[in-house]
Design a protein around this nucleic acid. Structure first.
Length: 273
DNA sequence: CCTTGAACCTGCGGGC
DNA sequence: TGCCCGCAGGTTCAAG
């Protein structure tokens, strides 16, 4: 379900709703997501206070007062809801935490591609999930020289390269197509063929698309909703994603769809070189 | 090394 | 209506 903008929105909402709350109880209803839910989840979260909520790549990190951090990834269909009052578990609910002030946090994920883990906060970034990750796209570390150096010897397509978490994190299938449209680059171009001028424009385009999507509350196509089930608005601003056979808003050419590494890519054959 | 493709799951919409 | 197929905001691991 989520790329960086959706996760960023979720993190901001969680901060404003459950920061400094206490976890009174937590229970895992199923043993497995993409990985096993830690058996010590309940023991190491109960009676702790939520001290910080941050994001790295598409992971949500909830730091607790007992020096542990909860790591949550939503996969394709994960949701986190915050409910007021009593709560009856629903289909595909996997973890339920009761919080102070009569709130309940629910992790629901039909496809179970998501993940929940628990680790010591002081060694968080040495965690296997984080150790190989590349730069945050909205940070100053993501700039033209960095991108060009990473693309220099890459034989894969540029779209796959910007979705590669070892290069940049957070760019998924929607925003990869949208950013390449904004940068006027065809998705199947070889990564190493990107010129300096194109690289500069691509970096700016990725930052711009992600920032706009964050500001719009993320994209809601089928699954993504906020902690209180509100939809995002960026799907209304898609220029190419999901628009196969429709006219390009800029030049009127028909938007094409191709498959790359098993994922759909959308582009304008005229605007993108 | 490096790149591609399958696997993990469930649900939904389209075509017949 | 019902069944089958393809497809879905992700990541990882095996095979070539």
């Amino acid at each position: 379900m989520p790329e960086l903008p959706e996760v960023e929105n979720l993190v901001r909402q969680l901060k404003s709703s459950i920061l400094n709350h206490t976890i009174l109880s937590s229970i895992a209803l199923s043993p497995m997501l993409r990985r096993e839910i830690p058996k010590d989840l309940s023991k190491n979260t109960t009676d702790t206070k939520i001290q910080d909520i941050t994001r790295r790549a598409k992971y949500i990190i909830i730091s607790l007062s007992n020096a542990y951090s909860l790591i949550i990834h939503l996969g394709m269909t994960g949701r986190i809801n915050i409910k007021q009052g009593s709560y009856e578990p629903k289909k595909h609910d996997h973890v339920i935490m009761h919080l102070s002030n009569n709130l309940t946090m629910v992790y629901n994920d039909p496809r179970r591609f998501g993940l929940i883990d628990l680790t010591k906060t002081n060694s968080l970034y040495e965690h296997k999930l984080f150790s190989h990750l590349g730069v945050e796209p909205l940070s100053e570390n993501f700039h033209n020289a960095y991108l060009l150096a990473k693309l220099k010897d890459k034989k894969s397509a540029i779209k796959n390269a910007i979705m590669n978490n070892e290069i940049i994190v957070g760019v998924g299938n929607i925003y990869a197509s949208e950013a390449l449209f904004l940068a006027h680059i065809k998705p199947y171009r070889t990564a190493s063929s990107i010129t300096e001028a194109e690289g500069t424009l691509l970096v700016a385009s990725i930052k711009k698309i992600l920032q706009q999507a964050i500001d719009s509350g993320g994209s809601s196509i089928r699954d993504f909703v906020s902690i209180d089930n509100q939809k995002g608005g960026f799907q209304k601003l898609f220029k190419v994603y999901g628009r196969r056979a429709s006219p390009c808003f800029d030049c009127g050419s028909i938007i094409e769809k191709i498959t790359q590494a098993g994922r759909s890519s959308f582009f304008c054959p005229k605007c993108q070189k």
